[in-house]
């Protein structure tokens, strides 16, 4: 009996997160436009895109793996989100965090990436595997500082459970991880840039350089699923960062907690947007080398700092 309730709660929290994710992307698109001195599309533009793609009559498909690509991708997004407790203590937004800890979430991020890679590969378009190759390499590069940050957080709080980490950061603003373990947070935020694929590290999905690639091959509802996933996946990652580094959203009243969550995730996202808007794009090997140099050094320092001081 409680399984159906549990599923119901999960659907609600997915809807909330997707809506918030899409609006966030809409706002970001707006900001980019403003920064570039133009008006840009309305904030709810992503919703229109989804409706428009789903309404397409006929979609082309390259075989069953091409068909499963977006499914994997969206399942990845869903899975990542479902295993992160959004609001401390609430059952509705607690999702299925009893299923696993930060490691599970980190590996679920790969799930989506791998699934998309297989789908795009089947697509037969030469540019998609090139994009995937770059995406995987960049992912393996930015994974290093991120994992080092996660390890130092694990050492600091002696636990990998997200809920326990968030609990440990409650109380005043000073005991957020941001202040207790600043090095780890810096490393994590830099790797967040890589994850979000914004400006300096956007070579992977750079539409200008590879004119066609997945967006054109995957049209119709395939594209729709991808776009919904982009919203949800971005929201999931932001919530994860919020929980780990910025004290998470904890408030007796659900609505106020949701509000805190929205504000915090907005600002985390703004960080990568501001950086993205003001930096040119790296070449692939530059971005890999970049991640393996300074951020990794900061990560190692973070671990040494926590472990032995």
């Amino acid at each position: 009996m409680d399984i159906i309730i549990r599923i119901l709660y999960a659907v609600i929290s997915i809807l909330v997160a997707t809506v918030w994710g899409l609006t966030l992307t809409g706002i970001v698109r707006k900001i980019y436009a403003r920064v570039h001195g133009r008006f840009g599309p309305p904030v709810w533009q992503p919703f229109l895109d989804i409706i428009q793609t789903h309404s397409r009559r006929v979609a082309i498909s390259h075989g069953y793996m091409f068909f499963l690509g977006p499914v994997f991708r969206f399942a990845g997004g869903l899975g990542t989100y479902l295993f992160i407790p959004v609001i401390l203590g609430s059952t509705v937004f607690g999702n299925f965090s009893m299923g696993g800890d930060v490691l599970l979430v980190m590996y679920f991020i790969f799930f989506g990436q791998l699934g998309m890679a297989l789908g795009a590969g089947e697509g037969g378009h030469p540019y998609s595997p090139m994009g995937i190759a770059r995406g995987l390499s960049q992912m393996s590069a930015f994974e290093v500082p991120f994992s080092l940050a996660i390890i130092s957080v694990a050492i600091q709080y002696h636990s990998l459970n997200i809920t326990t980490i968030v609990q440990a950061q409650q109380g005043s603003i000073l005991n957020w991880t941001l202040f207790t373990n600043p090095l780890a947070v810096i490393a994590a935020m830099i790797s967040l840039l890589g994850m979000n694929g914004h400006a300096p590290f956007s070579i992977v999905m750079a539409p200008q350089e590879i004119p066609i690639g997945p967006p054109i091959e995957m049209n119709g509802s395939f594209l729709g699923i991808l776009q919904t996933n982009r919203g949800l996946f971005a929201a999931a990652k932001l919530i994860l960062f919020m929980n780990l580094f910025f004290g998470g959203a904890a408030h007796p009243n659900i609505l106020v907690a949701l509000l805190i969550m929205m504000i915090k995730t907005f600002f985390i996202y703004m960080f990568s947007v501001f950086v993205g808007a003001s930096f040119p794009r790296f070449r692939p090997e530059q971005s890999f080398r970049f991640f393996l140099k300074w951020p990794t050094a900061i990560g190692i320092l973070a671990i040494l700092y926590i472990a032995y001081l």
Binding site: L82, F83, M98
Partner: peptide
């Protein structure tokens, strides 16, 4: 002592997360 992992739940949730978009598509 650090974290926890429930293989069964993970399998179920992933199946669920996989079937939903499959049906949609």
């Amino acid at each position: 002592e650090l974290g926890h992992w429930d293989g069964h739940v993970v399998m179920l949730v992933t199946m669920g997360a996989f079937i939903v978009p499959l049906l949609i598509l």
